[in-house]
C-alpha cells in the first residue's frame, strides 16, 4: 500500500469571456500518480463541470499540456512527486498564449493551421526523424517512424516572444519548417519563415527546448534554420542575377 500524500489542487477555472478564478480541491493521492490522474479524479468525484483535454495518457497525443506550478508540462507523464510535496500545493493552469475556451481547455486551432502551412509530415525515415546530432539508428531496419513533435503547444506557452506578439509563428511552427526544409530543401518553406514574425522574432530564451517533452529541441531547430537562411542569402548575393533563387 503506497503512502498517500494530502495535497491541495488549485485549478484556474474560466468560462469564455468571464474572469478567471481559482478553485481548491483537497485530495489524497499516491505521489506516483500523474497530475492528469488528479485532475480526472476532481472531475469524477468533485465537479463534473470541469473541462480539460486528454486522450492517450502516454505522451503521444499532446492533448493534456497545461501549466503545473507555473511550468509547462504534459500532465499525463508528470508524477505528482516531481512537482509538489506532502501537504503541498499543485496549481494547474491552462497553457499561455492560446485563447481559453473553458477551464483548462485552450483553442489550438490557429496553432494547428500554422503547423499545416509548413507541410510537416507526421512520419519520416528513421534517419531523418531524429535530430542530426543524435546517433544514427541501426541499419538493419530501414523504416519510418512518427516524428518527435506531438504538437502539444508547450513551447508556445513557454516562449516569451509568443507572450507579446499576436502574429509570431511560435517555436513549434519554426521547428516544423526546419524539419521540412532539411528533408526537402523546399525554398517555399524558407520563404514562409524568413520574416519578422518568423525566424527573426525569436529572442533566444531557450524556454521552448527546456519544456519540450518530446526531444524536438525547437530552439536548436530555429537557430539551424536561421543559419540555413543566412547562408542562402549570402550565396544569393554572389550569384549572377539570372542565377538567383527565392527567397
Amino acid at each position: 500500500m503506497p503512502t498517500l500524500w494530502k495535497i491541495t489542487l488549485e485549478i484556474l477555472r474560466q468560462r469564455q469571456n468571464q474572469p478567471p478564478h481559482v478553485e481548491l480541491f483537497e485530495l489524497e493521492v499516491d505521489p506516483d500518480e500523474n497530475v492528469l490522474d488528479c485532475i480526472e479524479r476532481v472531475w469524477a468525484f468533485h465537479d463534473r463541470s470541469l473541462t480539460f483535454r486528454h486522450a492517450c495518457h502516454h505522451s503521444t497525443c499532446g492533448a493534456c499540456g497545461m501549466r503545473v506550478n507555473g511550468v509547462e508540462k504534459l500532465t499525463c507523464i508528470t508524477p505528482v512527486r516531481e512537482v509538489t510535496h506532502p501537504n503541498g500545493v499543485l496549481r494547474v493552469e491552462p497553457l499561455r498564449n492560446f485563447p481559453v475556451l473553458s477551464d483548462l481547455v485552450v483553442d489550438v486551432s490557429g496553432f494547428f493551421q500554422r503547423m499545416e502551412q509548413t507541410q510537416l509530415s507526421s512520419i519520416a525515415p528513421l534517419s531523418q526523424a531524429k535530430l542530426p546530432f543524435e546517433p544514427n539508428p541501426p541499419t538493419i531496419w530501414q523504416g519510418q517512424r512518427l516524428i518527435d513533435c506531438i504538437e502539444c503547444g508547450l513551447c508556445v506557452s513557454a516562449c516569451p516572444a509568443a507572450n507579446t506578439s499576436t502574429s509570431y509563428f511560435g517555436p513549434a511552427v519554426l521547428a516544423a519548417a526546419q524539419h521540412v526544409y532539411r528533408q526537402t530543401n523546399n525554398p517555399t518553406v524558407m520563404q514562409l519563415v524568413n520574416c519578422a514574425d518568423g525566424l527573426w522574432r525569436c529572442h533566444s530564451a531557450y524556454e521552448c527546448s527546456a519544456v519540450c517533452p518530446s526531444n524536438v529541441d525547437p530552439a536548436w531547430r530555429i537557430m539551424d534554420m536561421r543559419r540555413a537562411t543566412v547562408a542562402h542569402s549570402l550565396r544569393n548575393i554572389f550569384k549572377r542575377p539570372n542565377q538567383k533563387v527565392a527567397p
Binding site: 507555473g70 491552462p94 499561455r96 492560446f98 485563447p99 513557454a158 507572450n163 530564451a205
Partner: peptide, 18 residues
C-alpha cells in the same frame, strides 16, 4: 491568456523559468 504587447511585464518575471 492570449498574446498581447500588454504582457511585456511578464518578460521580467523569472519565476519557474530556466
Amino acid at each position: 491568456n492570449q498574446p498581447s504587447p500588454r504582457n511585456i511585464l511578464r518578460w521580467f518575471d523569472p519565476r519557474h523559468r530556466q
